[in-house]
Simulated scan of single mutants.
Amino acid sequence: MISLYAHAGGDEGLHRLEEIFYTKVLQDPLLRELFPERRPTHVDHLTWFTAESFGGPDRFTRELGFDYLIGVHRHLDISDEQRDRFVELYMEAFDEAGLPGDEPFREAVREHLEFGSRVAQQNSRAVTDEELHPLREVPLWTWKEPDSPAT
């Protein structure tokens, strides 16, 4: 089974996607308060997280750890509208990045986004540690890859 990471084109494909996405959120009026300024490491961190979640190297866990991710989302109070816009812009970036457009891959990416954005939203609204989402490690996302063509 091919990983989502490999199908996306590895680090190169995912970095291209995250750069396009990050540029979009920085310019978006609704998301600007969540992303008020360009941080030099943000695209790399996004790439590391997505790569690890899609079955690639575990750099995010080794270099930053999941507690880092919880910390950056705490107290952002992400609205439903912001969460929806985040997913919308990510899928726009996905289309613009030239990643494979097959429906099984596209659906897996969308499901990953929907899940992850809900975790981030819950953590952004948590007042106490008990209100945080129970996820404490980068999830490994899988998919039902398309059947291989006959040779």
Rank of each mutant, 00 (worst) to 15 (best):
81 E>P: 00
28 D>T: 03
41 T>D: 09
68 Y>E: 03
33 E>W: 07
20 I>F: 08
58 D>G: 00
68 Y>P: 00
26 L>G: 14
76 L>C: 01
67 D>T: 05
61 T>R: 02
76 L>W: 01
63 E>C: 06
52 E>I: 05
30 L>I: 15
48 W>H: 07
39 R>N: 13
33 E>L: 04
78 I>L: 08
80 D>T: 10
35 F>I: 05
80 D>Q: 10
28 D>R: 00
25 V>I: 12
22 Y>V: 11
73 H>S: 06
45 H>D: 09
56 G>F: 05
52 E>D: 02
60 F>Y: 13
26 L>E: 08
83 R>F: 11
16 R>Y: 07
26 L>F: 07
45 H>Y: 13
82 Q>Y: 06
46 L>E: 11
14 L>A: 08
79 S>L: 14
20 I>D: 06
84 D>S: 10
76 L>I: 04
55 G>R: 01
39 R>L: 14
20 I>A: 12
21 F>L: 07
75 H>W: 09
40 P>D: 15
38 R>G: 03
30 L>R: 14
68 Y>L: 00
62 R>V: 12
46 L>S: 13
40 P>E: 14
28 D>P: 01
57 P>C: 03
38 R>V: 07
68 Y>M: 05
57 P>F: 11
17 L>F: 15
56 G>L: 00
72 V>H: 12
64 L>Q: 04
71 G>W: 02
84 D>C: 01
23 T>C: 03
17 L>R: 14
31 L>C: 08
40 P>R: 15
37 E>N: 06
56 G>E: 01
39 R>S: 12
32 R>C: 06
53 S>K: 04
77 D>W: 01
42 H>F: 12
35 F>T: 07
45 H>S: 10
64 L>V: 00
29 P>F: 09
40 P>W: 10
39 R>P: 00
34 L>I: 13
80 D>G: 04
34 L>P: 08
28 D>S: 02
64 L>T: 04
71 G>C: 05
77 D>T: 08
28 D>N: 05
36 P>L: 07
60 F>W: 06
44 D>C: 00
72 V>Q: 14
14 L>Q: 09
27 Q>L: 06
